[in-house]
C-alpha cells in the first residue's frame, strides 16, 4: 500500500451530488487509499454548526475533510455560508490550540479521482505527523 494507514481517524463529509459519487468513482477504479477514512454522505455541509467539528475532535477524530461541490453547490448560498463557517471554526480551533490543518475544506467532483486520493493521502500523512508528536 502506498500510504500506510494509522490509528488517527479521518472523517470525510462528502456531498451527495459531487464528492460522494466521486468517492465511488475511486472505488470503481479500485484505487486504494488509507482505511482510517470514514465517509459520511451529506446534502450540504453548511448544515453543521461550529460545535459539531469541535465535538468531533473532542470525540477523538484526528482529521476532517469536507468534500463539497464548491461553486457547483446546488443549494443557493450554501457554499458561501459553509466557507464562512469554516473560517469561524478555524478561529475556535486556534483558541483551543488545535492544529487547523486537521480540518480541510475542498471541492471534489464526481470523477475527480486523483484529487480525492491526494486529499485523503495528504490528510493521512498530516494526521500521522501531528499524532506522533
Amino acid at each position: 500500500m502506498a500510504t500506510q494507514a494509522n490509528e488517527g481517524k479521518i472523517l470525510i463529509l462528502a456531498t451527495e451530488t459531487c464528492a460522494y459519487p466521486g468517492a465511488n468513482s475511486v472505488g470503481q477504479a479500485h484505487s486504494t487509499y488509507p482505511a482510517n477514512t470514514y465517509i459520511l454522505r451529506v446534502r450540504a455541509p453548511a448544515l453543521f454548526p461550529e460545535q459539531f467539528y469541535l465535538d468531533c475532535f473532542e470525540k477523538g477524530i484526528s482529521g476532517i475533510i469536507i468534500m463539497s461541490c464548491g461553486e457547483e453547490c446546488p443549494y443557493e448560498g450554501a457554499y458561501h455560508a459553509l466557507a464562512k463557517r469554516i473560517d469561524r471554526v478555524y478561529k475556535m480551533m486556534k483558541e483551543r490550540s488545535l492544529d487547523i490543518r486537521r480540518l480541510r475544506l475542498t471541492a471534489i467532483c464526481t470523477v475527480c479521482n486523483r484529487a480525492f486520493l491526494k486529499e485523503v493521502n495528504q490528510m493521512n500523512d498530516l494526521v500521522k505527523e501531528l499524532d506522533e508528536v
Binding site: 459520511l40 450540504a44 453548511a46 448544515l47 459539531f52 450554501a78
Partner: peptide, 23 residues
C-alpha cells in the same frame, strides 16, 4: 440545504432524514 440548522442556538431545527443527531 440546512444552513438554518447550524445557526440555531437551541438545536430546535433539523433537516428531516439528515438530522444533526443522526450525524
Amino acid at each position: 440545504c440546512g444552513i438554518c440548522v447550524a445557526v440555531c442556538p437551541e438545536n430546535a431545527i433539523d433537516i428531516n432524514g439528515w438530522t444533526l443527531g443522526q450525524y
